[in-house]
Design a protein around this nucleic acid. Structure first.
Length: 797
DNA sequence: TTAGGGTTAG
C-alpha cells in the first residue's frame, strides 16, 4: 500500500522542464560534472525585470545582481563600464564562480590579464574554484604556476583553495603537498585536507588528519564534524561515529541540520538504520537531503518497504518533491523486491522531469532492470547512455549474468577492454560466474591470470569464484590447488570445494572435506548440505545421504529447503526404489518444483519405469517451464519400449509448443583451440583418421559397425537412420579426435551440450579401458571421469 | 570583498 501511494507523486509530478539544461551545456560538456552547477540561480540570458535595492556605485550594482542570480544583467553592466577597477573584475569572477559559471569565470580571468589588470589574492581563490568546478586540471596547474610566479602561493586563502581543488580533481597527493608546504594552516586548511581524504575514499587518512588537527590545538567545527562522519562511514567505524555523535550532543552543532544529516547517513552506512531512524524522527525540520539520506539508509540495509513508506511520508507530511537523488536512492529498493512497475514509474518520472541523461541515475536504472529480470530494458538504458563509467559497465555485465545471459556478459566484457577503463574487483566478481557457466578452460585460465595481475587473488570472495570456475571447466586439480593455497577460507570456500568434487562424482572426497571443515571450526550452512547431498547422489552414497539429510535439522538446526529435497529425490531414485521416491515427493512439506519432478523423471528413465515417468512428466508440463528436456527423455523411453505412436505424439506436442530438440554437440580443447563435433560430423580436416580410429575402437569394444569413412554419398534414409544411432554420436568422434591429438599422459577432455547417452557412456568406459587413457566427459549435469573401464558417476547420472 | 559543507549507482 505504501509503495503504491509513494508512487503517486512519480505519476503526476508535472511535465518535462526544458529550460534547466541551457547553462550546463555551455559550462561543460560533461553532464555529470555539471549536476552541481546546473540549476543556477538564474538563466544566464534571462531578461527578467529587476527589483533590487538601490546601489550607490556601478560596482555595487553588479555585486547585487550577481548575488541575486541576475548574472546576465550583471555582465551587461560590467561590459558597459568605461573604466574598471581591479575590484570589479574580482566581483564578476567571484559572482560567476559562485553561480556555477566556471568556464565564464575563467574567461573573465584571462580577459582581465590580457587587459593588464593584476589578479590578486582575492582573485585567485575564485579562479582556483572555477578550475575545480570545471574539472580542468590543465587550467588549475596553469593558474598554480602563475600564482607561484607572482608570489601568491604563500597566501592562506590561496593555499586552502588549492588543497580543495586538487582534492576535488582526485589528486590527493598534490593536495597533501600544498597542505604540507603551506607556511600557516588554519581550521579551513585542516578541514579542506580532511574533506579531501574523504572525497577520495581515504577514510583512515582523514581520521589521522582529524586527530592531528586536534593535537595542534584546533577545535573541530561543523565542517570538520561533517567530514569526519563521512570518514566513519567509509571505514564503517560505528563506535567512532557514536563518539562523534556524543561530541555533537555536547556541542553547539546538535541542531545543525547538515550535521544531523551526516549522522543519519553515517548510521545508515554503518549498518545501524535503527539508530538513523531514531535520530531522524527527532529532527523537527526535515529537508529533502535528510529525507534522501533516510531513504538511502533503508535501501542499503535491506528495508525496501520502509524505504517506500519513507518516500510517501516525505511527500505527504513535508510536501516535498522527489529529486534526482531521491530517485537514485529509491531504485535499489525496487531492485531488492523486484518491483518492476515501481522502477519503471521512476524511470518515466525521471524522463518527464528532465533528470535524464544522468550517469548515476541511468546506472541505477540498469541495475534495477537487471535485478528485476529485465536485462533487455537494462541494455536499452545502457546503450542510450551518452556517458558511461566503470560502474555502468559493471552494472550491465551483472545484469546479464544475473539473468543467465552468460555469452552476452562475456561479449560485453570483451568490449570493455576496448574502452579506456580498467576492470576492477567488482567487474571480476560479476564476470567469474559467467566463465564458470560457459566453462571454457582456456578463457578461464586467462581471466585467472588477470585476477593475479590485479592482485585480487587474496580476496576470499574472488578465489571462491575461481575455484568453482575451474571445477566447472573440468580442471578439478587446479581448483583444489587454489583452494589449498587460500589463506583465509570461509564457509563458502568449503562449500565450493565440496561442490567441486560433487560435480566430478568424487563423493568420498566431499565427505572427507566436510569432516576437515568441521575440524577447522567452520559451521556448515544450508548450502554446505546441498553440496554434500549432491556428492552423495553423484557417488551413489545412499545411506550417507539419508544420514546427512536427517542430521541437518537434528544436529545443525537447518531446515531442509527445496534444493535439499531435490537431492534426496536423486538419491532415492538412484537406489532404484522408485515408489519410495514417488511417495517422498508427494509427502514432502514443500511444493515440488519442476526440478524435483525432473529428478523423478530421470530416475524413472534410468530404471525404465514408464508409468512413474509419465506421472512426473505430467507434473512438469503442467508447471509451464521449458519442457524440451522432459519431452526428449520421455520420447526416448517410448522409443526404447517400441511405443512409436507415443513417440510421434510427443513429437507433435513439441512442434505444437514450438520446441526443438537441441542437436547434440561435443567439443575438445587442444593447444588452446576448440574443436567442435556434431553427430555424424565429417567436416573436420582429419575426418578419415577420426573415423578409422572410431572403427578400430568400435571393433575393440565389441560394437561391430560398418564405417566407410570416405564414402560421402549415401542414401538419405541410411543417413537418417545413422543419425539416431549412437555409434556416430558427437561425443565418440570427439573422443577419437582427442585420442589422436592429445599427448599421451594427459586425459582426453570432452564437453557435451546435453547429457551423455547410455550407449556412449558404456562405450567411453570400454575405450578408456582398452586404450589405458583417462577420458573426461563433461555433460549438462556433471563430469564423468572414465578410467580403467569405470566411471566416477558409478553409472548413474 | 577572498577559502572548506550534508544525500548519488555494483
Amino acid at each position: 500500500m505504501a509503495a503504491i501511494l509513494a508512487l503517486s507523486y512519480f505519476h503526476y509530478a508535472g511535465s518535462v522542464d526544458t529550460t534547466r539544461r541551457t547553462i550546463s551545456a555551455k559550462t561543460s560538456q560533461n553532464h555529470y560534472l555539471t549536476t552541481k552547477q546546473t540549476a543556477p540561480k538564474s538563466a544566464l540570458f534571462s531578461r527578467k525585470k529587476l527589483k533590487l535595492p538601490n546601489a550607490s556605485t556601478r560596482e555595487e550594482a553588479i555585486l547585487l545582481r550577481l548575488k541575486s542570480g541576475f548574472t546576465e544583467d550583471a555582465l551587461h553592466l560590467f561590459e558597459n563600464m568605461n573604466t574598471r577597477d581591479p575590484s570589479v573584475w574580482n566581483v564578476v569572477i567571484r559572482g560567476l564562480t559562485t553561480n556555477g559559471y566556471f568556464q565564464h569565470a575563467l574567461e573573465v580571468y584571462y580577459r582581465m590579464r590580457s587587459e593588464g589588470i593584476r589578479a590578486d589574492n582575492y582573485t585567485y581563490p575564485f579562479v582556483i574554484k572555477a578550475c575545480a568546478g570545471s574539472f580542468s586540471l590543465v587550467e588549475g596547474q596553469k593558474v598554480h604556476s602563475r600564482l607561484i610566479k607572482v608570489g601568491f602561493d604563500l597566501d592562506i586563502y590561496v593555499c586552502n583553495s588549492l588543497v580543495a581543488m586538487y582534492a576535488k580533481l582526485g589528486l590527493i597527493g598534490l593536495a597533501e603537498r600544498v597542505f604540507e608546504e603551506q607556511p600557516v594552516r588554519d581550521l579551513v586548511s585542516w578541514n579542506s585536507m580532511i574533506r579531501g581524504f574523504v572525497s577520495v575514499g581515504e577514510g583512515w587518512n582523514a581520521l589521522l588528519c582529524f586527530r592531528e588537527m586536534q593535537e595542534v590545538g584546533l577545535r573541530p567545527d561543523r565542517f570538520s564534524i561533517i567530514s569526519i562522519l563521512g570518514a566513519c562511514s567509509l571505514e564503517c567505524l560505528l563506535r567512532y561515529g557514536k563518539e562523534i555523535h556524543v561530541q555533537v550532543i555536547r556541542s553547539r552543532f546538535e541542531l545543525d541540520v547538515m550535521v544531523q544529516t551526516s549522522l543519519v547517513d553515517m548510521y545508515g552506512k554503518c549498518g545501524r538504520v535503527d539508530y538513523a531512524e531514531t535520530l531522524f524522527e527527532r529532527i523537527y525540520q526535515k529537508n529533502i537531503v535528510l529525507w534522501n539520506a533516510m531513504i538511502a539508509g533503508y535501501s542499503r540495509n535491506g528495508k525496501p518497504v520502509e524505504s517506500f513508506a519513507c518516500l510517501k511520508k516525505m511527500q505527504e507530511e513535508d510536501k516535498l518533491n522527489p529529486d534526482i537523488i531521491t530517485a537514485i536512492n529509491f531504485l535499489p529498493s525496487c531492485a531488492q523486491i523486484g518491483a518492476l512497475l515501481q522502477g519503471k514509474t521512476i524511470h518515466g518520472f525521471a524522463l518527464r522531469k528532465g533528470f535524464l541523461p544522468h550517469l548515476v541515475l541511468e546506472t541505477a536504472l540498469v541495475d534495477m532492470y537487471g535485478k528485476c529480470g529485465e536485462q533487455k530494458l537494462a541494455r536499452k538504458v545502457f546503450s542510450n547512455m551518452s556517458e558511461r563509467n566503470l560502474v555502468s559497465w559493471n552494472a550491465m555485465i551483472a545484469a546479464y549474468v544475473q539473468n543467465g545471459h552468460n555469452r552476452e556478459a562475456l561479449e560485453l566484457f570483451e568490449e570493455l577492454w576496448k574502452e579506456p577503463l580498467n576492470p576492477d574487483a567488482t567487474t571480476i566478481t560479476s564476470i567469474l560466474p559467467a566463465y564458470a557457466e560457459v566453462a571454457l578452460l582456456r578463457e578461464s585460465t586467462q581471466i585467472h591470470g588477470y585476477v593475479a595481475k590485479l592482485n585480487l587473488s587474496s580476496s576470499t570472495f574472488i578465489s571462491n569464484s575461481i575455484v568453482y570456475m575451474y571445477a566447472k571447466c573440468g580442471d578439478l586439480q587446479t581448483a583444489r590447488g587454489i583452494f589449498d593455497g587460500m589463506v583465509y577460507k570461509d564457509v563458502i570456500s568449503w562449500n565450493t570445494i565440496i561442490m567441486a568434487y560433487a560435480i566430478h562424482g568424487f563423493g568420498a572426497n566431499s565427505v572427507k572435506l566436510f569432516s576437515e571443515m568441521k575440524e577447522e571450526g567452520i559451521k556448515p550452512n544450508a548450502s554446505t548440505f546441498v553440496s554434500l547431498l549432491l556428492s552423495c547422489s553423484a557417488s551413489g552414497m545412499i545411506d550417507e545421504g539419508w544420514e546427512y539429510f536427517t542430521s541437518m535439522e537434528k544436529d545443525y538446526g537447518i531446515y531442509p529447503g527445496i534444493e535439499h529435497y531435490g537431492c534426496m529425490v536423486d538419491i532415492l531414485g538412484r537406489s532404484g526404489n522408485l515408489d519410495l521416491a514417488k511417495r517422498f515427493v508427494s509427502e514432502m512439506p514443500l511444493v515440488p518444483t519442476a526440478r524435483i519432478w525432473g529428478s523423478l523423471l530421470a530416475a524413472s528413465r534410468h530404471h525404465r519405469n514408464i508409468e512413474i515417468a509419465e506421472h512426473a512428466a505430467k507434473h512438469i508440463t503442467s508447471l509451464g517451464h521449458d519442457n524440451t528436456g522432459c519431452y526428449v527423455l520421455l520420447s526416448n523411453m517410448y522409443a526404447e519400449a517400441g511405443r512409436w505412436g507415443d513417440v510421434e505424439r510427443i513429437k507433435f506436442q513439441m512442434a505444437k509448443e514450438g520446441l526443438e530438440k537441441s542437436p547434440g554437440c561435443s567439443t575438445v580443447e587442444n593447444n588452446n583451440k576448440i574443436y567442435k563435433f556434431i553427430n555424424l560430423d565429417k567436416s573436420h580436416m582429419n575426418t578419415d583418421m577420426i573415423y578409422d580410429v572410431l572403427s578400430i575402437m568400435s571393433r575393440k569394444i565389441g560394437e561391430d559397425i560398418y564405417i566407410n569413412s570416405v564414402s560421402k554419398l549415401r542414401p538419405l534414409d541410411v543417413i537418417r537412420k545413422r543419425s539416431t544411432s549412437p555409434e556416430f554420436h558427437s561425443v565418440r568422434l570427439a573422443i577419437c579426435f582427442g585420442l589422436i591429438q592429445v599427448s599421451l599422459g594427459s586425459p582426453v577432455f570432452v564437453r557435451k551440450n546435453v547429457r551423455i547417452c547410455e550407449a556412449c557412456h558404456s562405450a567411453a568406459k570400454k575405450i578408456a579401458e582398452n586404450t589405458g587413457r583417462e577420458i573426461v566427459v563433461g555433460d549438462q549435469k556433471m563430469y564423468h571421469h572414465f578410467r580403467n573401464g569405470r566411471c566416477s558417476c558409478g553409472d548413474y547420472w
